[in-house]
């Protein structure tokens, strides 16, 4: 019978993790990805489960001078209802509210959503756009990693074998920031994104663009930024932004594919249109 480890502290969890056999263990948080994989994809033989759901440190949300620190084990329903999140990071409240539906949000954690590393993860674009940083705990202490360096390839992350995601840090945004979030799924609720987009644009006093970041879901092997679009916009003025160029940049930044949910062509076109809309309608 498989062993079930349920540490109460992060230190304990890290110690246990360091001792686990490399291949036959499974880390589980809310379980909404793990349990599905366990049932539907070829179930693996799991000798040891490391359950993170009883670690209070992972469930904390703290507002700091720089922003907010969200424990990796915070559920999406906590996030969606959190007044500070709603006020300062409305895109995150919005993405949490459209990740699955209530029964999923009550279990699914933000950390799990990122570590599962699906290209369609709904909260990933938002964290990319907000410029989040990850706090990663390992046997040798804690390190910080800009979130945009976390996804290395299809379902591949920068987490080392004995590391755990501890928290997600989202900074306050400067005055003049505007945001835009939209998820396109086959139906209104409980749908995997065909395209997801979050944008953060920092305007000067006029229509000059100081900085711009776009996070996208379901248009590449990982959640991704649009570096060429950002580069084109930064230092530019809204008045001079050209739709054709945006399209060109978007299509060189993303690599959408045909799959069971949508087509590459649709994803590219809609991503381009939504980026254009984001630039003009972000508020």
């Amino acid at each position: 019978m498989a062993e079930w480890l349920r540490p109460r502290h992060m230190n304990e969890a890290l110690r246990l993790l360091a001792e686990l056999p490399a291949d036959h263990h499974q880390i589980i948080s809310g379980g909404t990805d793990v349990m599905v994989a366990q049932q539907l994809r070829a179930p693996r033989d799991i000798a040891v489960w490391l359950d993170l759901s009883a670690i209070p440190e992972l469930k904390m949300v703290e507002v700091t001078a720089e922003g907010i620190r969200i424990g990796a084990g915070v559920t999406l329903s906590v996030l969606r209802r959190h007044p500070e999140v709603q006020k300062h990071w409305p895109m995150l409240a919005a993405s949490a509210a459209v990740t699955g539906a209530a029964p999923i949000q009550n279990r699914a954690t933000l950390g799990g959503n990122l570590c599962n590393a699906s290209p369609a993860a709904d909260n990933a674009p938002v964290l990319l756009a907000y410029g989040a940083r990850l706090e990663i705990a390992g046997p040798n202490g804690t390190r910080f990693l800009p979130y945009d360096q976390f996804h290395l390839g299809y379902r591949q992350t920068a987490l080392a074998a004995h590391e755990l995601l501890q928290a997600i840090h989202v900074p306050y945004l400067p005055g003049g920031s505007r945001a835009y979030y939209r998820k396109v799924g086959t139906r209104a609720a409980q749908a995997i994104a065909k395209v997801g987009i979050a944008a953060w644009i920092h305007f000067d006093a006029g229509q000059g663009i100081i900085a711009a970041r776009f996070g996208l879901a379901s248009v590449a092997a990982t959640p991704c930024l649009l570096p060429r679009v950002s580069h084109y916009l930064e230092g530019n003025n809204l008045k001079h932004v050209c739709e054709f160029t945006i399209r060109e940049k978007v299509s060189s930044d993303i690599k959408p594919v045909d799959d069971i949910r949508s087509t590459a062509e649709y994803r590219l076109e809609v991503a381009s249109r939504l980026v254009w809309e984001a630039i003009h309608d972000a508020h």
Partner: peptide, 16 residues
């Protein structure tokens, strides 16, 4: 049937 799961055969929910 290729979309042989409820995550990709889509029927209306209350939100729709």
């Amino acid at each position: 049937m290729a979309n042989d799961r409820l995550t990709n055969y889509i029927i209306p929910t209350t939100a729709d």
